[in-house]
Design a protein around this nucleic acid. Structure first.
Lengths: 343, 343
DNA sequence: TATTAGCACTCTCCTGAATAGAGTGCTAAC
DNA sequence: GTTAGCACTCTATTCAGGAGAGTGCTAATA
């Protein structure tokens, strides 16, 4: 799939110059421009020859005969993998993410991170909370709302709070709830939601019938767990995307905004980076979702505690300021990690 | 401001016909079209005369000399107040909101309502949860996360859950927390968050020093309360708005999407309907926010229990299917109310 | 052999003129 | 009061022409 034709030093230099220029100006880059910009003093004619070579190899393309070149997705990929890395870590200057360290509440932190990602990148920010299934219990409450309905509050060791209402066919007694509460909080610390369910099973087999109704409905929790993933999804900066000239076309805007509203699809798309160490960049057609063609995604996962994964990142046009955004996303992931670890 | 010139029966009929036609077709309406559509058999020339009258009175306008008429904001207002009402309640046919009655969890219900509002209206749906300050306590939990941080879970009588983390300068003991927990749950049922704070004040003056640190920081809750309003705000159907021809202009889209991202401003805008009984319609320039010019808002508040107010509604172009949307929003408010009352 | 200058060629974008079409406003007749 | 007729206005579309940007190729040059 990925042809291994290496580029000469000069080709690399020119490819990089073209991409940088295009990222800044959003217009096809001509040979004259590069001839002037570049350190090597080469005439436009020479540049043209090299450009033709780069086009043949699939790194550049031509909107039409008499226009300059623009990078292909493959061109961007080469740039991200081979050309942009050196400069990316110059000094650890201000990232702009500093305000985050003052937030101590999950929802607020997630939303705040998302806003900052969008604000600093000028693209669209995404943050996904850790799944509840990855969290270990610190405290759990079963609160009676009505004889048929229990509110379950789950607090993780990392301080994240999830709440769900479960609805049963049979009524519960306050008595039952109290016992549940006590049992779970005394016996289930450090367990995740599945393990807690196991423990409850054991309890029932010991003291049969006492919790019959309760347990029957605890299994409902499982269905609910899946849904909770959707709720913990943050997307910010929709209007940012409109500032970029590649989205001057109404059709493209529509397609993209449709994609943004299908949270479930987006989550699936992003899930693919969950095994990836570090910042993952997905460029244009590397994404399967057709509505997202023309866009790149820069994502990183973050860990909370032992193996608790959430994700955050940025979506923008393929013509993205990659080095800057990659660093931003990386820093954000690190900040979130340290914020939740220090407790 | 609002001139009281009444319209003749014929003028009303024609104004209504023009507005209906324009709402459907989104194009300036000519005299020929109306002449054919209308029950009265009048020639285009006569219609033109009446149109000129309506324009003089401020109900219609002319994009340019040789175009048909389009309604002014005032025209829409007259239509909504005087013309559209008769048909609006024909039969209580299916609203499409039925799936809501199966949802029993606050966040899910709010988001689901918002999605349905947007889906059924084809405009943008808005839902605002009740303020925590309006809610009465059913249960409250103070859970220790670390010596300096307490998670406060507040469950209202209506089953809404809010959680906040408060951070103190002085450390708390588990002991103190337990006493707090017990005291609040035994003495503060049915109270709102402010009243609970009062009660805690009393407690401290009785048993001085014991809860010193705790109380000092309970006041922090107040700051947090304000912020919580922002979190309970749902907006859905951004891409719907792009389907309407009045938003073919990129500038308009940008302005509107900027408005959508400034949640706080939006909330303030919508707050104005909180004292209004029934469904409130705000048309075009009746809104102060410049970014929202060209849009109408149809909102209704809903009550949960005694005086607990939330709001829901729809934002769309001034060329909106008012009767239908007004009925939709009204039904949605009623459904939410009954869902939370029956417990 | 690599580089460069020169030049014809291609394609886009902008402008202005011409034209068709929709709908009005006015006048005079019914 | 209503209507037919007609001149008029304004928009939207199409088409041709010209400027501009940038290429691709060829032949000359170092």
């Amino acid at each position: 799939m990925y042809m291994a034709d290496e580029l000469t030093g000069r080709e690399k230099l020119i490819l990089e110059a073209i991409i940088k220029q295009y990222i800044n100006q959003a217009e096809p880059v001509g040979s004259r421009t590069i001839s002037k910009r570049i350190v090597l003093s080469l005439s436009p004619a020479t540049i043209r020859n090299i450009m033709a070579d780069l086009e043949e190899k699939g790194f550049l393309q031509h909107p039409h005969t008499s226009a300059g070149r623009i990078p292909t997705d493959r061109g961007y990929r080469y740039y991200v993998d081979n050309l942009s890395k050196k400069q990316s870590r110059k000094k650890t200057k201000k990232t702009g993410l500093e305000p985050l360290s003052k937030i101590h509440e999950r929802e607020e932190l997630m939303e705040g991170t998302c806003k900052l990602l969008s604000f600093l990148s000028k693209y669209v920010g995404i943050v996904i909370s850790p799944r509840i299934t990855e969290l270990r219990m610190k405290h759990m409450d079963f609160i009676s709302l009505s004889p048929h309905r229990i509110l379950v509050v789950f607090v993780s060791e990392t301080g994240l709070v999830y709440n769900r209402i479960i609805e049963g066919r049979e009524p519960y007694t306050e008595q039952e709830l109290k016992m549940m509460n006590q049992f779970v909080n005394e016996n289930c610390e450090h367990l995740n939601i599945f393990e807690i369910r196991e423990k409850l099973m054991e309890l029932v087999s010991e003291e049969k019938m006492l919790y019959k109704n309760l347990l029957q409905n605890i299994s409902l929790l499982n269905e609910e767990i899946n849904r909770s993933q959707i709720e913990s999804f943050y997307l910010q900066g929709h209007s940012n995307i409109l500032k970029h000239p590649e989205f001057a076309d109404l059709q493209k805007i529509k397609a993209l905004f449709n994609a943004f509203e299908e949270k479930i699809k987006l989550i699936r798309l992003l899930d693919k980076c969950i095994d990836y160490e570090g910042v993952k960049v997905t460029i244009g057609t590397e994404n399967e979702d057709l509505n997202i063609r023309g866009c790149s995604i820069v994502m990183a996962r973050y860990r909370m505690g032992s193996r608790i994964n959430g994700m955050l990142g940025v979506i923008g046009p393929t013509r993205m300021r990659y080095p800057e955004v990659i660093e931003l996303v990386g820093s954000a992931a690190k900040i979130i990690e340290t914020l939740f670890c220090e407790e």
